[in-house]
Amino acid sequence: MTRIHGLDLARALAIIGMMAAHIGPGHPVTEGYPSVLFAVLAGVSMGIISRGSLAGEGDLPRTRFRLILRGVILVGLGAVLSMLQSSILVVLTAIGVSYILLTPVITWSTRRLGVLLAVLVVTGPVLVAAEHVLSFSWGDHAVADLFLGVYPLLAWLAYTLVGLLIHRLVVSPAHQNQTRRQIWLAAIGLALLAGTQLLIELTGFRVGPNDILNEFGAYLQGEPHSGGLLDVLGSSGAAMAVIGLCVPACRAASVVWASYPLRAMGSMSLTMYVVHVVVTTIANGTFLTVYSIYGCGPQPYLPEGEFGGRMYTPLSDPLDFPGAGNPDALVFSAPDAGEPDWLWLLAAQVIGLLIFASLWRRRFRRGPLEWGMHRVIEGAVGGTSNSPTAASPRG
């Protein structure tokens, strides 16, 4: 089956946005929206993978197993990347967990999925607000991070479910008047984004997760990755708008031709993301930080302030870091917006990955990691395709 060009273009925009967030100075546009777009697109892919089985053209138990195994692989990759470096908060684990938890609902009707989405959107911020007001004692840091970390679980389940519904209602080839549906998707997304931004400006609820808010403010907060209501609605709206604009735009042959390097990047988004994380953390000296923290490996080798001005300072409370008890453990502060060096690293990575993806895509239909994942999954379920040139799913 052929790929959906607009989805590949949207994936490339998500990857480049996350690269800017990881390398450049902090900004709500890059820190929040790209990773949410990546999660929503993962939900669209979930719908694409399960479409044949739901239509009676495939084995539903095998499809479920494929989705769960895909989720497990993403969780594993996310855990490995998180252990190998400390400067980037890896999104793959949250997406993998969402795949695993949402696999049982792929057979639900669209209406039931909509109700589930509404419940997640409403209850997720309740948990965030309750934590701000009551300060729960979770006992296990991993559990607290799963539900209330940078990628709060209920919010990320909602984002993945938004993608699943977008596939059902907008992208699926079973629907006629797809272009009209996609324009409506973009319009609704832009309205959500504009409405939430207006509320944020009027109320000032874009505050950091560690700031003290009253119950209502904690529920509504729009800070990226906070899991507040305005954050979830605005981020979902931005993702809907990007997908709703990219998919119909790529129906024009000129756009398809001009966007080939970006679409090639988007077609192997997992490979692009992992390579970016590794290259960035090697460049800023935070790769293999477990060894660096305990003094058993190389310390950051770049001059202080290089590539975005990341500064290396002692932890105020060593117990808050995996190197607990070591007062010499290092943390990495936000980049200095006045330091231009980060632009060179970002530009070099974007250009390099675009060139690599374009050349690879001319020879293979799947990226290196995508091919490896496909081979593992199909081998586990009894598939036969072991070549990176084998046909890939749409989108």
Rank of each mutant, 00 (worst) to 15 (best):
His5Glu: 07
Ile16Lys: 05
Met19Gly: 10
Ala21Pro: 04
Ile23His: 07
Ile23Gln: 03
Gly26Pro: 05
Pro28Arg: 08
Glu31Lys: 08
Glu31Met: 14
Phe38Trp: 05
Ala39Ser: 15
Val40Cys: 13
Ile48Met: 15
Gly58Ser: 15
Gly58Phe: 08
Leu60Pro: 01
Phe65His: 01
Ile68Glu: 04
Leu69Tyr: 01
Gly71Val: 08
Gly78Ser: 14
Met83Leu: 13
Ser86Gly: 15
Ser86Glu: 13
Ala94Phe: 15
Leu101Ser: 02
Leu101His: 03
Arg112Val: 09
Arg112Thr: 12
Val121Gly: 09
Val122Ile: 15
Val126Tyr: 00
Phe136Arg: 03
Val143Asn: 01
Val143Tyr: 00
Val143Phe: 03
Asp145Tyr: 04
Leu146Ile: 06
Leu148Gly: 03
Pro152Tyr: 05
Leu153Lys: 03
Leu153Pro: 00
Ala155Tyr: 11
Ala158Glu: 11
Ala158Asp: 10
Thr160Gln: 15
Gly163Ala: 10
Leu164Lys: 12
Leu164Pro: 06
Ile166Gly: 11
Val170Trp: 11
Asn177His: 15
Asn177Ile: 06
Gln178Ala: 15
Arg180His: 13
Gln182Glu: 12
Trp184Lys: 12
Gly195Lys: 15
Gln197Arg: 15
Gln197Val: 00
Ile200His: 06
Gly204Asn: 10
Gly204Tyr: 09
Gly204Asp: 08
Arg206Phe: 06
Arg206His: 11
Val207Trp: 07
Pro209Thr: 13
Asp211Thr: 14
Ala218Met: 11
Leu220Glu: 09
Leu220Ile: 10
His225Asp: 09
Ser226Asp: 13
Leu233Thr: 11
Gly237Cys: 08
Ala241Met: 12
Cys246Gly: 02
Ala249Gln: 03
Ala252Ile: 03
Ser254Trp: 05
Val256Gln: 12
Ala264Tyr: 03
Ser267Met: 02
Tyr273Ile: 03
His276Ile: 02
Val277Leu: 04
Phe287Arg: 00
Val290Leu: 06
Ser292Trp: 00
Ser292Thr: 09
Pro298Ile: 08
Glu306Leu: 14
Phe307Cys: 06
Thr313Tyr: 01
Pro318Ala: 14
Asp320His: 03
Pro322Thr: 02
Gly325His: 07
Phe332His: 13
Pro340Cys: 04
Trp342Pro: 00
Leu346Lys: 01
Ala348Cys: 00
Gln349Asp: 01
Gln349Gly: 04
Leu353Lys: 00
Phe356Thr: 02
Phe356Cys: 04
Ala357Arg: 00
Leu359Glu: 00
Trp360Glu: 02
Trp371Asn: 08
Glu378Val: 00
Thr384Lys: 13
Thr384Pro: 00
Ser385Lys: 07
Pro388Ser: 09
Ala391Arg: 12
